[in-house]
Design a binder for these strands. Structure first.
Lengths: 242, 242
DNA sequence: CGGGGTATTGACCCAAGTCAATATCTGTGG
DNA sequence: CCACAGATATTGACTTGGGTCAATACCCCG
């Protein structure tokens, strides 16, 4: 899944799989050329902590492939995943040189990195990057708030259904909707990671998946692959009647 | 608490109580003058819905005084407050002309408003506004994610303690810290609104406040006023040992 | 001083957590 | 290719924190 064993090999932006969604999506060919000159790829192995809350991080990056999480935890160690970073998502907070939450590679990652200084300079000159970053930030804020509804008010069953729908939505790389018939997805997270993201325990995640399977809402093809024969049935769990 | 019965009376920016925290806090005198020309005040009565999710809103605003909330709800009506808007906070999403979540005035509000179009134009010209808005957005995203930890992992007791500490932090207008001895605050929210913000029910909020009172961690002076004789005791509920 | 909203308190219940026992994958070395 | 070990996932039995339902109490404000 990673682009190459040679970590610093650049692929041309025009062939980049996240070209149309990432922070560079609005750029002209000329602007892409500028980005191309300062970018560098980096591979991160699964499980690696990229940065801890408060640490300095003098690179920003787009996720080209793989999955990372943002997480926070209480003083006694209870952990909550507060953000899921999928391909095209951006790592780094504009205007801040430290990270707000722990960043962890869940799978092997390929990152398209920029040193903060040249990136910030470039942001001043190329409004297309600046505007897209602002837009992505606003989207993330909305998504975080939507997730607050899930964490604060939804039942375990609704949380699982919401998560499956999120993965369906994000796993079709193009944003063509549809998704009203059948869908088949690979879960990017283990049961433990799902539990952390949904504010549940492993056992409850497992039980709810089993229960949805027994009701025929989903089929489990191995432990990570899920077939959803009817997205409408899943949506109706959230009361979104068709 | 509102500035005036005449809603459109402008006060001069240099005397504005939120001058040093709001979106205009970085502005030079000259830039303030520009803002001053296009701003207008508006009063909103307590309880009024300012906008519903998805609605167009062609003004943006800073809260000068009063409290508003952002909220979201499930199809069957369970509601979660996803953001608390206090004086100096900003209403409106840059680059979007619709709102992402329901906005409600909790108390009477005084807003410092700008029509979106002239504000957007001004943002292009005055980097100080643009940068401050970006910074505020990043802060809001961090705060939303911190709240996800509260909603997903904290006990009712910890939620209440966190909320009280948040109000202590925000109610001292200046950001001088300290807050390790005594503090006395006015709760800006009713029990119901607190419950909505904390992902609890009214009854649980009430019971936890009673329990903290019985233990001497807080004193309730009437229903809205809280005396905290020792902030350290409150902080230790979150495991933040001194 | 009475009435509607707001808050507290009590009794009971249940969804999800905890603890514990298997079961099932996955990868490694014989 | 199989056996084995460690990690991951499932399932069961039991507990519990916080929800629900219901009865007061409180508190402004006309």
């Amino acid at each position: 899944m990673t682009v190459s064993a040679a970590p610093n090999l650049k692929i041309d932006c025009s062939h980049c799989p996240i070209r149309h969604r990432a922070v560079c999506s609005r750029c002209t060919d000329e602007e892409l050329q500028q980005l191309n000159e300062i970018k560098f790829y980096k591979s991160v192995p699964a499980g690696k902590t990229i940065a801890l809350r408060g640490e300095k991080l003098d690179v920003v990056a787009s996720i080209v492939s793989g999955v990372a999480t943002l997480s926070d935890s209480t003083a006694d160690g209870r952990a909550q995943t507060v953000g899921l970073l999928l391909p095209s998502d951006f790592i780094g907070r504009p205007g801040r040189d430290s990270v707000g939450h722990d960043i962890t590679a869940i799978t092997d990652l390929t990152l398209c990195c920029f040193r903060r200084k040249p990136f910030d300079e470039l942001m001043v000159e190329t409004p297309h990057v600046r505007e897209r970053l602002l837009e992505m930030l606003v989207d993330e804020l909305d998504a975080a708030r939507d997730w607050m509804l899930l964490l604060g008010r939804m039942t375990a069953r609704e949380k699982i259904a919401s998560f499956l729908m999120l993965i369906v939505r994000r796993s079709s790389l193009a944003d063509k909707d549809g998704h009203l018939g059948e869908a088949e997805i690979d879960l990017p997270l283990s049961r433990e990671e799902m539990a952390s993201y949904l504010g549940l325990t492993i056992e409850t995640v497992s039980r709810q998946l089993t229960s949805l399977r027994k009701e025929g809402v989903i089929s489990l093809l191995g432990t990570r692959r899920v077939l959803i024969p009817d997205m409408g049935a899943l949506a109706s769990i959230l009361g979104d009647e068709i």
